[in-house]
């Protein structure tokens, strides 16, 4: 995820725990990255797809024709 950044505050304890997790498990480059990842995991993340209303209608038509809907 990119774009404008904002600051948030979390407890030192949670921050240290996150840092340790990253050192041990890898995968994430920073606590910021981990926090973003966990937020999308928890609240879900719409988007990442560009489907216009016309395209969505076409998709639904095909799904209906094939008996999926």
């Amino acid at each position: 995820m990119s774009g404008e950044k904002v600051k948030i505050e979390i407890s030192r304890e949670a921050y240290e725990q996150a840092k340790r997790f990253i050192e041990e498990q890898g995968g994430f480059k920073s606590v910021e990255e981990l926090v973003e990842f966990l937020i999308t995991e928890a609240v879900g993340a719409e988007g990442g797809e560009e489907i216009s209303p016309e395209e969505e209608e076409k998709i639904k038509e095909r799904l209906r024709r094939l008996g999926y809907m």
């Binding site: 797809e49 395209e55 998709i59 095909r62 799904l63 999926y68 809907m69």
Partner: peptide, 12 residues
Amino acid sequence: LWPKETRVLFRE
């Protein structure tokens, strides 16, 4: 089905 299609389907 391709990813765009299953995504629409699952949401529906």
